[in-house]
Design a protein around this nucleic acid. Structure first.
Lengths: 291, 291
DNA sequence: TGTCCATTATAGCAGATTCGTATAGTCGTC
DNA sequence: GACGACTATACGAATCTGCTATAATGGACA
């Protein structure tokens, strides 16, 4: 059964005469005639009665028409979907990310990205960075965003490094300084990430190097929580200047010395070629992490 | 987009290598290769990455595969439906009939007919004979069964005539006779069809011709009701010997003279060619009305 | 490193399919 | 009986299909 036969059959059923069907399909009447003859021969159905040089569809033709039309639509749909995929209007995007990114950065970027993409399916999974790393290894995600260091590095990894800054409640005396060092924070109540976090370790070294007393009054899991506590005056803290930016509204932000490095990476599956969709979104994500 | 391309694509997605896909499709590997190249060119999609002389489906290929497989299935389904139509396993049968036929004859015949026809759709509409005649004129039914005479005859009409017989309650004195005439029924309580019915008119003439008194004690719409009343001893009556046979269990049936004719017709739409399904069922129906 | 093996890609050719033009056949209408 | 509208058939050119032969690629392994 050939597609052209079905097309001719549909046009003929819809327009009654071969002459007219031929016009609409942009072909000659004998062309339609032979197509229909072929279809009748191959299906073994008498689709039209020839009465007085005219065609009359048989009941069998009407039954078959339903399926023929459905089949043609399915093929035409496949064709349309191909065009959608090619132009990037259709696809899916499965992203695994750790909470700060997932809550703050992704919704904004994705809603921007999804404009003009009516058939885009988005999936976001939020896990801590270690789990994100495992998920990307299972190849079930197109992209992942995790904090460094990872237990073992992935081959497709794009790293973004930030120098953390000191955050202070608005009107805090130290806000007058242009740059803040551990000496300035000697004994000052301090909000930090948990003990296991690289940030914690870097801070501990920094204070000990400067011989200053690090007065930790709170440990939190995320920067966002730390920001909240600082805003409420529990102490000062340290924060990355890009990803956590939305949480630092109304806080004073000052450069911190020595450098406390915070690293984030975009991860891609290794064994799988990235989809065009994923590549396009990765560009946007890169910009978002750079800004 | 050609069907063969989609078939090759599906086989390749399912079996990983062109060599294997070619085997399963019964064609050569270069054949698959050119088909896939054509599909990629026409859709504008890179469906496979050529890495190390091997193929790896791209994410786009996976997206497109869903639609391609769906389209192929729809076409294959159309093909299968054509075979079902041809072999008479698929079709529909819309029948309009008057009550006696619809209740008694049709269910038996249809259940027999529907065996081995998994995709047969049956529609029965039960109306009085006048309405049946109108329905068939609207061309919405494949077959109809109505009593004669009709207001105006249809061109496609097959008539079955029956000589009505006298029915008597079991053990009725007249049951000893081989044949019954109006003389035998002079003054005997009689159950008949309604005054408007041709049977009524024929009976009235018969009694008047024989100079016998016709003692009508009940008028009914259907033979079945009349049979019921006779069985309960309300009187004797008259019945057609074929269509109403199932209602005369336990009654004595004797030939009646003069002839009271009861006529039934199978009607077909005039402007529409009958479907093979309708023709096949008409054969069965003919046998049922003749027996 | 070189050979073997499995795979895909390309070229060239024969046959099938498609589709146009030309033309004949059929039927209803005027 | 001519005309008009339609369908069917014949035939040829262009295209498509799918084969064989062969090249190219890269991994495995000695």
């Amino acid at each position: 059964m050939r597609l052209r036969q079905l097309e001719c059959f549909r046009a003929l059923m819809l327009h009654g005469t071969m002459t007219r069907a031929a016009e609409l399909l942009g072909m000659s009447q004998p062309g339609i005639s032979t197509m229909i003859a072929g279809l009748e021969h191959e299906t073994g159905l008498s689709l039209f009665l020839r009465r007085g040089g005219r065609l009359q569809p048989t009941p069998e033709a009407k039954l078959f028409y339903v399926e023929a039309a459905r089949a043609l639509e399915a093929v035409e749909n496949a064709s349309r979907v191909a065009a959608e995929i090619r132009s990037g209007r259709r696809g899916h995007l499965a992203i695994a990310a750790y909470p700060s990114i997932s809550i703050n950065l992704l919704p904004r970027l994705l809603s921007q990205f999804a404009r003009n993409k009516p058939e885009l399916q988005i999936k976001i999974i939020t896990r801590n960075s270690a789990t994100v790393r495992e998920l990307i290894a299972t190849q079930q995600f197109d992209l992942a965003v995790a904090e460094l260091p990872l237990d073992y590095p992935t081959s497709h990894m794009e790293v973004f490094s930030y120098d953390c800054a000191c955050m202070l409640p608005h009107g805090h005396p130290l806000a007058k300084l242009k740059q803040i060092t551990p000496d300035d924070l000697d004994g000052v109540p301090f909000v930090t990430l948990f003990r296991g976090d690289p940030i914690y370790q870097q801070l501990a070294s920094a204070f000990s190097e400067y011989g200053a007393r690090w007065n930790v009054v709170a440990e939190t899991e995320f920067f966002s929580t730390a920001c909240q506590l600082v805003a409420e005056g529990r102490g000062v803290g340290i924060v990355d200047p890009v990803v956590s930016k939305p949480f630092t509204e109304g806080l004073a932000i000052r450069p911190f010395k020595p450098r406390i490095q915070y690293q984030v990476a975009i991860l891609s599956p290794t064994h799988e070629a990235p989809s065009k969709m994923a590549q396009d979104f990765a560009k946007l994500l890169r910009r978002g992490l750079r800004a």
